[in-house]
Write a protein that binds this DNA or RNA. Structure first.
Length: 611
RNA sequence: CGGGCUGUGGCGCAGUUUGGUAGCGCGCUGCGUUCGGGACGCAGAGGUCGCAGGUUCAAAUCCUGUCAGCCCGACCA
């Protein structure tokens, strides 16, 4: 239920007649004339005969998901360009509902709302070092050249937030402080998809905390995470915060907030028995059970031209070796800068730890001992290359098939501990459903999901580079600010919500998210003035009771009105028609369940308010 | 950024193979009949066929280029 403010006067008659008194519900009496109750949406009534809305019977051709197709068909959003959307009145109302919830929860957590500029001078990005990444895929930012120089259309706001707080904060007495904003961000997305889920222009809520030291930063972080959980709870989405990186390097903490969804572009691993969860880049799995080694001799086999696992398998076809007994070996640079090879079973994908990078073809070619397409872990010590092997290789020491470290040659019968030696072992494969949970050993499952929010403990990453991001401590000593940042995709949430709440007929918004509380439909009002009068009176009663109402006063056929009501997805539909009016009742239908109920017309507003 | 496909009234599409001057459904406007789950009749409005060149007596149709969009992949703060 909404928590309507009941301070509006009851003495505001609703009438279909045009009037010069803008204080009444005139024929122009849209919500925009009626004020807001501080936080939630404007209450009052929107007449569909006045609403900027056109519903579509068919799916537009460019829709790629059910929720997005319905948002377009129901007239909530329109696409202007790839990944760029217009919010029409209904869509904006939903957006405002979601941002209202975000605001309430963040304010409650002690954060303070600001509005940072979308445009920021590129010098700021030079200072943080992030401009160097603009040309890469790592940070596809958009820039504009103006008279004042080059500006970045903000993809995120760590720099601006840091500068802003640095200007205002001078003393430990002012800490901690967390600011947030709800604002449009710009990202030069390579491939926009799924309507509002992956866009080039997006509405995001981003928060930035500043603290005196690491432990205070961690406290702010925990508060932000708790606030984010509360937000997801209120919008009715299941969320799992997952560890986003292995944390092996640098101790940087960060979590992705994953919402399971059919339109998810990510997967995360989840253990239903102990609650372990991590995204696929960070997820570990328990070492497989040890197997007895079957000793075999090392044999070189010619595999001309075979570089990929499949090609090698084909070249060795006569030996009948399963993919899982082949070693996939790739060359990498570790976070410390050392060259290493990682060997995993051939039927698994390598998981690179945080800040480890694949060696480029040129680097491989330049390194003696590394042969692209024929790499193996044996004999690497002689070339100063570290050998990292996955636990599965430890569990089953041999025999393995690997590259022969010579062009066109592979080797069979390799054994760990005899023919090659591990400098480091661990979980280096991407987990798959059925792998053992690293903490409890029960099977993990992979869940398709959307990243709906992301939180970071940034530490001194920005504040150490941006000048003036310091404060004086109790001893009068200058200290650097410890920073955290927290982003939640507000417009993306809309896309996820539409995907999560719909059926074959249309959208089914949850209460508190829907653009209006009630959808009032009349049937036959143009032929029977009594129906129009009854509906007008009901609208007035509902308004007085604090409800926002979408009033279908159009002269349209019943089928059209019903179909539109289902499509728009407002939780409860009220129907005033000839049949019911004879008995003095109005019919109430729940959009989601389809349950119908009759209410006494004269007390309907009261009954709805107390139910 | 690679590979594939598609651009024709507001929306969804046919027409392109075999060049002959644009059509269907929905929507829209007017009038009338209807009216409790996307009604019907009659009369209308609306398109330089993405754009630019070229071939031809003639181009939505053939050729070249270009732009945009979609799908698969790569990538993803």
């Amino acid at each position: 239920m909404p928590t309507p403010t009941k301070q509006r006067s009851r003495s505001r008659p609703s009438t279909a007649e045009p009037t010069t008194d803008l204080g009444t519900t005139s024929r122009w009496g849209g919500a925009h004339l009626r004020g807001r109750d501080g936080r939630g949406l404007a209450w009052g009534t929107m007449r569909m005969s006045q609403l900027l809305l056109k519903t579509l019977r068919d799916d537009p051709s460019d829709t790629d998901s059910a929720g997005y197709a319905l948002l377009v068909r129901a007239g909530y959003v329109r696409r202007l360009a790839a990944g760029v959307y217009t919010f029409l009145p209904l869509g904006l109302r939903v957006l405002q509902q979601v941002s209202g919830i975000v605001r309430t929860e963040l304010d409650r957590a002690g954060m303070q709302e600001v509005l940072l500029p979308a445009l920021s001078p590129i010098e700021l990005w030079h200072a943080s070092g992030r401009s160097a990444r603009f040309g890469t895929d790592a940070m596809p930012a958009l820039t504009v050249d103006g008279r004042g120089g080059t500006f970045v259309l903000g993809p995120t706001h760590e720099e601006v937030a840091t500068v802003t707080v640095a200007q205002e904060v001078e003393s430990y007495r002012q800490l901690p402080v967390t600011i947030y904003q709800i604002q449009t961000k710009f990202r030069d997305e390579a491939r926009p998809r799924y309507g509002l889920v992956r866009t080039r222009e997006l509405i995001m809520c981003d928060a930035y905390s500043f603290d005196a030291d690491a432990s205070a930063m961690a406290e702010s972080y925990d508060r932000a995470v708790a606030a984010y959980r509360a937000i997801f709870e209120r919008v009715g989405l299941e969320v799992t915060p997952v560890v986003a990186q292995s944390g092996a390097i640098g101790g940087e903490v960060n979590h992705e907030f994953m919402v399971p969804s059919p339109i998810g572009e990510d997967h995360f691993a989840r253990c239903s028995s102990c609650g372990y969860s991590a995204n696929t880049e960070a997820a570990l799995r328990r070492a497989p059970a040890a197997q007895e080694a079957v000793m075999a001799e090392v044999v070189e086999v010619a595999t001309p031209g075979a570089a990929s696992m499949d090609e090698v398998l084909t070249a060795l076809g006569h030996l009948d070796i399963p993919l899982s007994h082949m070693l996939k070996t790739i060359a990498v640079r570790t976070a410390e800068g050392a060259v290493a090879v990682i060997s995993v079973p051939g039927d698994r994908e390598v998981r690179l730890p945080h800040e480890w990078d694949l060696l480029s073809d040129e680097e491989v070619a330049a390194h003696p001992g590394l042969v692209k397409g024929s790499m193996g872990p044996q004999g690497m010590a002689a070339h100063g290359v570290r050998v990292v092997v996955d636990d599965a290789v430890v569990a089953r020491p041999g025999p393995w098939v690997a590259g022969g470290n010579t062009e066109g040659v592979h080797v069979t019968g390799l054994h760990l501990g005899r023919d090659f030696f591990a400098d480091e072992t661990g979980s280096f494969v991407e987990v798959v459903t059925g792998d053992g949970c690293p903490t409890c050993g029960q099977p993990l499952e992979l869940v398709r999901s959307v990243e709906a929010a992301h939180t970071f403990q940034l530490g001194l990453q920005y504040t150490s580079k941006m000048s003036g991001a310091t404060y004086l401590d109790e001893a009068g000593v200058e200290q650097q600010l410890w920073m955290g940042c927290y982003g939640i995709g507000v417009s993306r949430l809309l896309g996820v919500l539409a995907e999560a709440h719909h059926d074959d007929q249309g959208l089914c918004w949850p209460e508190g998210i829907a653009p209006y509380d009630l959808h009032l439909v009349t049937l036959g009002a143009n032929r029977n003035p009594a129906i129009a009068e009854a509906a007008e009176q009901l609208v007035a009663d509902l308004e007085a009771a604090g409800f926002s109402v979408l009033y279908d006063d159009r002269d349209a056929s019943p089928g059209v009105k019903f179909a539109d009501a289902d499509l728009l997805g407002i939780p409860r539909r009220l129907l005033v028609g000839g049949k019911g009016l004879e008995r003095g009742i109005v019919e109430l239908k729940d959009r989601r369940t389809g349950d119908e109920r009759e209410l006494e017309l004269t007390h309907a507003a009261q009954l709805l308010g107390s139910s």
